[in-house]
Amino acid sequence: METLSIVKIGGNVIDDQDALNHFLHNLAALPGYKLLVHGGGKIATETAHKMGIPVQMHEGRRITCFETLKVVTMVYAGYVNKTITASLQASGCNAIGLSGADMNMIKAEKRPVKEIDYGFAGDITEVNITQLNLLLTAGITPVCCAVTHDGNGQLLNTNADTIAAALASALAGSWNTSLYYCFEKNGVLEDINQAHSVIPQITRTYFEELKQKAIIADGMLPKLNNAFAALENGVKEVFIGSHQMIGSTEVVNTKIALS
């Protein structure tokens, strides 16, 4: 099978134009087939504040009321998605910006209300690998934002880490797939205040130990859960680290392994 790199970019990298440009240049130069998933939460939060819309979070996940859904759609599927796509074109990478509704790419269902009402948050139910494979085999790099749909006209806000893992899992049967979670840190840190305290490898057993010690918490928890889910669904390898690891074999990062 051909190699496919699925890269998720988020955190402060999207807000740092120099870092983003460096990352996109390296991604464009990366050999083989690739797919990019991006967040944009900080910009969405700033935009919501400017519009007077309250921002609510729970365990690293955004609670999405109807007005917040408008904001994340404008920011994720609009400004951020098209800016990244244009930058990849400038670097010689033929890319297409997509939401989950485009080409019926990712369907989701509105998350049921349990202890927390997440509003218009979507849990993925289906990935259209046929359409994605058409784009990839044509040499086009999909740039996927964190907006999905339910198939009945309703847009939904879906965690970008979850989208990256779902896409990697769905495409693992067609490609030799690697998943990269890129953000502003060098990897998963043993000490959040020490940038170089990168944990080189985390197995599921070690993950449970790190959770009990509260070394891994908050927004890193869903990222690690998604990483393990991807490996269990046939993804070859998963890495978490800085944007500089793309295209480099020398940059320190954290490898996620089942055992």
Rank of each mutant, 00 (worst) to 15 (best):
K8N: 00
V13T: 09
V13S: 02
D16A: 05
Q17D: 14
L20Q: 08
N21V: 00
L24C: 00
H25P: 05
A29R: 15
P31S: 02
G32K: 08
Y33G: 09
G39V: 11
K42M: 01
A44L: 01
A44M: 03
T47C: 01
H49C: 05
H49I: 09
M51D: 14
G52A: 06
I53T: 07
E59I: 07
E59V: 07
E59D: 07
R62G: 00
T64F: 01
E67F: 10
V80D: 01
N81S: 03
T83D: 08
I96F: 08
N104Y: 15
N104D: 11
M105W: 10
I106K: 12
I106N: 05
E109T: 14
K114N: 14
D117N: 09
Y118E: 01
D123G: 09
V127D: 01
L136M: 05
G139D: 08
I140R: 08
V143P: 03
H149W: 13
H149C: 05
L155W: 09
L156H: 07
T158Y: 03
T162Y: 00
A168E: 06
A170W: 12
A170V: 07
S174N: 15
S174T: 14
S178P: 02
K185I: 07
L189D: 04
L189N: 00
H196F: 14
S197K: 08
V198N: 08
P200S: 09
Q201Y: 12
I202D: 02
T203Y: 06
T205K: 15
L210M: 07
K211V: 15
K213G: 11
A214W: 15
D218P: 04
L221Y: 08
P222L: 05
K223R: 14
L224W: 04
F228C: 04
L231S: 14
L231A: 14
N233H: 15
V235C: 13
V235H: 15
V238M: 08
I240V: 09
I246T: 08
T249V: 13
T254F: 03
T254C: 06
I256T: 10
A257M: 04
S259D: 13
